[in-house]
Structure formats: structure tokens, C-alpha cells
Design a protein around this nucleic acid. Structure first.
Lengths: 205, 205
DNA sequence: CTTGCAACATAACAAACGTTATGGTCAGTT
DNA sequence: AACTGACCATAACGTTTGTTATGTTGCAAG
């Protein structure tokens, strides 16, 4: 066994290259040759680390999730649950160029996931994590008296996920105009609708 | 000039076949051979009516819009502007199997529109029409005292478009669960937020 | 009745694709 | 020092693609 390069490190290099190619040409326009070139290698290297193109796509999808996760987890640790929810959702919005780039990538995976079961599985896991994160924050907000208690946290989280996706589509496709301030206002309005000015303990007493 | 078949009629046959293929294999998986077979012809016939695959896709996109338009226009003629808005948006939701099929098609066009300027142009026109329809109804609701007057109709319509897209994504991708009743409730909640119980004339007086 | 062109089918084409095969190089083991 | 296998390049393979070329047929105008 004569190893010179770290395996998982090389795989990340190709995954990152794949994301850059997707940004340029879309998931449908992605080719193993282009990804190899983007990574600074040739197809011989890529096939050494990935059994197939599908595997590369899945790895790329997981890598894109790893890019967001740490920031999300940090923002979720905010003392106020409602404030944490605000900041977490804001982070997901297509507010910055970098965020819009990621959105462009995710959107590229959407269609592929409709016709590729493997991609669909990864995509579902991704959304489960995202919805779960929001659900947990909403639950926390309820128990801390910052949000209504007559609320199904999972259902509320599902609504919020849909809201964010809708904004993402409009902005990334460029079919609508939703400036940053408006995006945040929409999220705040939704959070305001589940928020509760009076603490839970008082309304119970 | 020996014509036997109506030109625009044949083109619609191919457009409809293209939509069926997209439902099955996605826009990325669509091939001219498959569409020809689906239409009951061969590629020779298809190329006789379409200069390129892109033209076929655009025609198919426009055809899918023509499928919705009449129903939308009929529902928009409701006496009550708010009620018309409700019914029009409900019609756009992925509530029925048929509607979900159309959503699947639209979603397929999204990525392609990111990298194909021609498709992007058509897509933008489609959303302009959709947003304009909602904007008009909201404007009507305001002037009839059914909706707040301190409202930017275009901005409100943009929000509603995003909401519907978000629901569409979640349902069609199958990454979230939003039952029909919940979809309608979400729309109603949004409309409720812009609605006004007291007529405009009173609040002005 | 001839003729011309629309309306298709069939076949061929070059390009691009994912994948596989082959070969070379060099670090690390024996 | 010989050897081995990880690492990567290069090339080839078979398939599929959009497009073009080349028929063939049959209605309708002249």
C-alpha cells in the first residue's frame, strides 16, 4: 500500500470542483471531463476516486451541505430561540452572492432528484435535517414562551421551509425581484405570526 | 403547395408529446427521438416542424401555459376580488395529480432556464403574466375595500408567487409533506393578512 | 396527367458522453 | 535493491445525442 495522497481530501477536491462546474453549466451540463479539468486532473484521476458520475454528484451534494452546517449550528446556539430562528433562516436566504451560488447548485439538483432515486435519497435527508433544525428552534421558542404553544412545530417548520424555497426560486431564477430587505421582512413577518409577546407561563396561569 | 395537415396543430401534438416525455424523464432526459415516438412519428417529422430541440422545448413550455390560462381567466372573473384571488391561487397549487404533473414539468424547466437564455426569456414572460394576474386581483381587492390600501400590489403579488412556488417545490420533490388542506390554509392565511374586514370607504372617512 | 412540394420515414454523421483498458511513475514495503 | 500497488495520464470503446442528408409517398395545383 503506497499511499501519497489523503483519500477523503482528494474526494473533497473533486466535489468542490463539481460544485464550481454546476454553477457554470448546471447539473445537466456537468461532465466528468469538465470536473476533472476544473480540479486540475484528468478523468483517470477522477475515476480512481469515484465509481461513477452519480457517486460524484452525491458526494458534491453532501459537500455543499457541509459548507452550510457549521454556520447554521453556530447561529442556532443563540440565547433567544426566536432570534436564533431568525438568524438561521436569514442565513439560508439568497441574500449574498455566495448564498445565491449555493442556491443555484441546490436548484440544479432538484430536477435530477426527481428521476434519480439515489440523488432523491440524499436530497430528502438534506431537507429532513433542515426542517428538523427549524422545528427544534420553534419547539424551543414555544417552551420558552416566545412562540405560541398551540402550534405544531413540525408543521410550522414545513411552512417556513416552503417560504424560503419560494424566495430562493424567485431570486435565483431571476423571474422575480425580492430585494434583501424584503426577503428578511417576509421571514420576520412569518416569525411574527407565530411569536407571542407574553411569556408562556402567564398565558397558562 | 400541397398541404395536408394543419401546421400549428401538428406542432401542438409534438409539444404535448414533449410534456409527457418531460413528466417521465425530465427536461434533461428528453430526446427528440423519444418525443417523436411519443407523438407517433419519427425524428424526420419532428425536424420538419421544429428547427431545433430548443425550439421544441420553448414551444412545449408555451403550450403548458396555454393549458392553464383559460381556467385562470375564468376563475379571475369572480365577483369578489378576494374570492377570485383565492380560487386563482388554489388552482395553481399542486393539489391534484394533474396539477402536480404540470408542476413537475415547470420544475424541469427551471434549471434549463438558468443556462439557456431562450428558455429563460420564456420563463420570465410566464412569471410576469402570473405575477401580473395576481397583482391585478390584489389591486382590485384594494380598490373594492376588501384589502388593505397601504399595500404595494406588485410586491404583495411577488410574495404570493414565492409562497406558491415554495409549496410547489416541497410537494413535487416529495421532500416535505403539505397536505391539500394545509396548502389551502397557507394561502388563506396569507390572503387574510392582506384582507380588511372594513370597507375602504369607511377607513378613509 | 404530369409535376411539384409538403409530409413524413430512414439512414447517416460527427460530436460528446460515461466508462473501461492500458501504461507509466514513484513512494513505501520487504 | 527489487518489488508492489496507489496514483494518475492517455487512449480507446460503445452508446447516445442533435442534426443533416437522402429517399419515398401522395395530395393538389396547373
Amino acid at each position: 500500500m503506497a499511499k501519497r495522497a489523503d483519500l477523503s481530501e482528494r474526494r473533497e477536491v473533486f466535489a468542490a470542483a463539481a460544485l464550481r462546474v454546476i454553477m457554470k453549466s448546471g447539473v445537466g451540463g456537468l461532465t466528468v471531463r469538465e470536473v476533472s479539468r476544473e480540479a486540475g486532473f484528468t478523468t483517470g484521476a477522477l475515476t480512481h476516486y469515484f465509481q461513477s458520475k452519480d457517486q460524484l454528484l452525491i458526494e458534491a451534494s453532501e459537500y455543499s451541505a457541509r459548507l452550510m452546517r457549521p454556520r447554521m449550528e453556530k447561529l442556532a446556539r443563540n440565547a433567544s430561540a426566536i432570534e436564533a430562528l431568525r438568524k438561521v433562516v436569514w442565513e439560508a436566504l439568497p441574500l449574498t452572492a455566495k448564498s445565491r451560488h449555493l442556491w443555484r447548485i441546490w436548484l440544479g439538483f432538484w430536477e435530477r432528484s426527481s428521476y434519480n432515486p439515489k440523488v432523491a435519497r440524499v436530497m430528502r435527508a438534506r431537507y429532513d435535517e433542515w426542517r428538523g433544525r427549524l422545528s427544534m428552534l420553534i419547539r424551543r421558542a414555544s417552551s420558552e414562551g416566545q412562540a405560541r404553544v398551540d402550534l405544531d412545530p413540525d408543521q410550522a417548520a414545513q411552512e417556513l421551509v416552503a417560504l424560503v424555497d419560494g424566495i430562493g426560486v424567485q431570486v435565483v431564477l431571476g423571474v422575480g425581484r425580492i430585494p434583501a430587505a424584503r426577503q428578511r421582512a417576509m421571514v420576520d413577518a412569518w416569525i411574527g405570526s407565530i411569536a407571542q409577546s407574553r411569556p408562556n407561563s402567564l398565558s397558562k396561569g
